[in-house]
């Protein structure tokens, strides 16, 4: 047991992306797919990856700690639960204001995602934020309140509500194994 943990520590790469260890790539793929719902799920992951149970747990903890894993648990499907009013609000902010407004909107509890993106020809919007709500009227009111609170009345923006999800699932970044 102790030996396994020590050797893991020695093998630990500087960056998770540099990990060439096929077993770790396999572990990542397993974690993206989800745990088997059995009493000892980490044991199953150990069998599937070739790692020891201790290594599996150590690596998950390490990846969580480093931020490589952002969260580890129940991945909720909001639309299915009834959070169907999903608004993407896009703003055309002057370059010297986008950072400040982005940070302020991100701090609002109803804003679930907020990021800056590149502008394109015919698409001048450089700030995106997402609001997940139950009812559309409520989300519209929240957007009006955000505009007021942050003095965004003169900022060109558009609200894109979603009508249907053709797909909604977790990212699959792991390369397929040959």
């Amino acid at each position: 047991m102790i030996e396994a943990v020590t050797s893991t520590a020695e093998r630990r790469p500087a960056s998770p992306l540099q990990a060439q260890d096929r077993r770790l790539i396999r572990l990542r793929a397993c974690l993206e797919q989800g745990l088997p719902l059995v009493p000892e799920p980490f044991k199953v992951l150990a069998e599937q990856t070739g790692l020891s149970v201790e290594e599996v747990r150590t690596w998950i903890g390490h990846w969580q700690h480093s931020g490589f894993i952002k969260r580890f648990g129940l991945v909720v499907r909001h639309r299915r639960l009834g959070l169907a009013a999903n608004a993407m609000v896009v703003w055309n902010l002057p370059d010297d204001r986008v950072d400040e407004v982005g940070r302020r909107l991100a701090a609002e509890p109803e804003v679930t995602l907020c990021y800056q993106r590149v502008r394109r020809l015919g698409w001048p919007y450089n700030l995106f934020c997402m609001i997940h709500g139950v009812r559309r009227v409520r989300v519209e009111a929240q957007i009006r309140a955000l505009i007021q609170r942050h003095g965004l009345e003169d900022v060109d923006h558009q609200v894109l509500f979603s009508r249907q999800a053709y797909r909604q699932r977790g990212g699959r970044y792991t390369p397929e194994e040959p």
Partner: peptide, 19 residues
């Protein structure tokens, strides 16, 4: 029921790959 997609990990896409 479809309320939970999976019990698993969500990776930081900036570190996990490109998107």
């Amino acid at each position: 029921l479809g309320v939970v997609g999976r019990v698993g990990a969500v990776f930081d896409h900036r570190q996990a790959g490109a998107s």
